[in-house]
Amino acid sequence: MIPYVIKADKLTKQFGDFVATNQISFEVSKGEIFGFLGANGAGKTTAMRMLCGLLTPTSGAATVAGFDVYKQTEQIKRNIGYMSQKFSLYEDLTVLENIRFYGGIYGLPARELKAESESLLEKLGLQEQSKKLVGSLPLGWKQKLSFSVAILHRPQVVFLDEPTGGVDPVVRRQFWDLIYDAAENGITIFVTTHYMDEAEYCNRVSIMVDGCIEALDTPGGLKTQFKAATMDEVFYQLARGAKRQAD
């Protein structure tokens, strides 16, 4: 039996009459890079927030890292990393202070924290900038730093909500190198994106339309299934039918 790190079963979130995510079911195994695609307003962020324990589902079931999303949110939080759409490091703290702060509140022991932050700075080539305020860094570096901080405490899963929005292709490439690196170390990646070339980098991809998962397979499988040459075409065929207006 393959141990699933994320398992969702008919997970639903309703805001009043509006069904943001409608009975979505999927599994993600350990070390997998799972692409979570969909048009704006399709319900990706809502689904992700439920899995992170930020939002209580209306119905359905889900476990993350083996913990229940209704009752065991605090245990979930200890085992996941999260990088939201909004940049969420403290701009008025330095690079090193941010690393130490987030490492600290996840309970990393002092010695480990010191070693980890040094290796992180080295990996990102930020040693020179370690005493600079995060607010003064270019966006690409901020995003890379943000990701590295999200996996500092070695979570089982890391949730990335459009992590590469607004950064240039070179940085996006470097960002995906970091993702592969993390996946190789056994961290499961759950990522949303609007870039179809990034979808190709994923092991498996799901595409959401109007709150439902309409397709789920490897990028190659999806292309065969929809008789398309690129992921772009696959996405277009599915998202074209969407009734919801983008937000």
């Binding site: 939080k77 200890r78 996941i80 969420s88």
Partner: peptide, 14 residues
């Protein structure tokens, strides 16, 4: 406003 509270909310901070 800047969204850092959400980041704190996904950490084990009580």
């Amino acid at each position: 406003e800047i969204g850092t509270i959400e980041q704190l909310n996904v950490t084990p901070i009580r």
